[in-house]
Simulated scan of single mutants.
Amino acid sequence: MHQPIGIFDSGYGGLTILREIVRKLPQYDYVYLGDNARTPYGTRSFETVYHYTLECVRHLFDRDCRLVILACNTASAKALRNIQQLDLPSLDSDRRVLGVIRPTTEVIGKYSKTGHVGILATRGTVTSESYVVEIEKFFPELTVFQEACPMWVPLVENGEYASDGADYFVRQHIDRLLAQSPAIDTLLLACTHYPLLLNKIRQAAPDNVTILSQGHIVADSLADYLHRHPEIEAQCSKHGERLFLTTDSPGDFDRQATIFYGESIQSAHLAL
């Protein structure tokens, strides 16, 4: 039976998560759904993000996904809790929906020596306070500082992530975050688009600052989850197959997706 693991994102960024998951767990089948027609999610209300995310999760369930990963920080911040608590019991209590915030917050304290960590994210994720709340649960001794970077996703999606113009916006937000506390020694890229700006972020940040991307953290967490939940793992099919869906133009998606995923893909259009 074909029961893939579903990977959802508002657009392309989740492909950076999927890339690391496939590298870690290549044997499983995956369906990636990018809601490109309605991106960005970062500027939308909680209610709208919840509605859009639930609609996409339902579609992945219709494709027999027993496990869905919200590979989107905004969706994880604004929709995950409601879906887990309010919707799953009536949709199918045997299925699971996981996010990308908790795996990161479970480990971030291990990287900081000063106890001061910085979060770089979309405005929606920052406003939600999700990282502040979750980090408090696992590392109450940490002090968390946040900086919203509204220009970073447009820079990436318009292919400007390697341009000289991107330097200004990257340095601006790094400087603003570090101005909150010079003791910050760990920066978390809390948006799945931001790894494409990693080289410029490294150039803008002091050498002693550790910069964390989420892909390998989420991949390790998923492997651990499947190990700890053999009843879910047994339901996931293992043919090494990949299916890519987008709510917008497949041609546009395929061209952009290569940048995020690291290899060429062929997607299909999904009308919601």
Rank of each mutant, 00 (worst) to 15 (best):
Y52G: 04
Y52Q: 01
Y52D: 08
T53K: 09
T53W: 00
T53L: 00
T53D: 02
L54K: 12
L54T: 02
L54Q: 03
L54Y: 00
E55S: 14
E55T: 07
E55L: 05
E55R: 15
E55M: 13
C56V: 01
C56H: 06
V57Q: 05
V57K: 04
V57N: 00
R58S: 02
R58T: 13
R58F: 06
R58C: 00
R58Q: 01
H59F: 14
H59G: 01
L60M: 07
L60H: 05
L60P: 05
L60N: 07
L60Y: 07
F61D: 03
F61W: 15
F61Q: 03
D62F: 00
D62E: 09
D62K: 14
R63S: 14
D64K: 15
D64W: 06
D64M: 03
C65F: 02
C65T: 07
C65K: 02
R66E: 08
R66F: 06
L67I: 06
L67Y: 11
V68C: 10
V68R: 02
V68I: 13
V68M: 08
I69G: 15
I69S: 15
I69F: 05
L70F: 10
L70V: 12
L70N: 05
L70Q: 08
A71F: 13
A71M: 08
A71S: 15
A71T: 00
A71E: 10
A71P: 05
C72D: 13
C72K: 13
C72F: 07
N73S: 09
N73I: 03
T74C: 11
A75H: 07
A75T: 01
S76Q: 11
A77N: 13
A77E: 00
A77G: 08
A77M: 02
K78T: 05
K78W: 01
K78S: 10
K78E: 04
K78L: 14
K78Y: 07
K78A: 10
K78Q: 13
A79W: 12
L80H: 11
L80I: 06
L80W: 01
L80S: 08
R81L: 12
R81G: 08
N82I: 02
N82W: 14
I83V: 07
I83P: 12
I83S: 11
I83Y: 10
I83D: 07
Q84I: 02
Q84L: 06
Q84W: 10
Q84M: 05
Q84R: 15
Q84G: 03
Q85N: 15
Q85C: 14
Q85H: 15
Q85W: 14
D87Y: 15
D87F: 10
D87L: 06
D87H: 14
D87T: 10
L88Q: 09
L88F: 03
L88I: 12
P89A: 14
P89F: 14
S90Y: 15
S90K: 00
L91S: 09
L91G: 01
S93H: 09
S93R: 13
S93G: 00
R95L: 03
R95M: 02
R95Y: 00
R96L: 08
R96P: 02
R96C: 08
R96S: 11
R96M: 10
V97R: 05
L98D: 05
L98A: 06
G99V: 04
G99E: 01
G99W: 01
V100H: 00
V100K: 06
V100N: 04
V100Q: 10
V100W: 04
V100L: 02
I101D: 02
I101V: 15
R102P: 06
R102S: 09
R102K: 09
R102F: 12
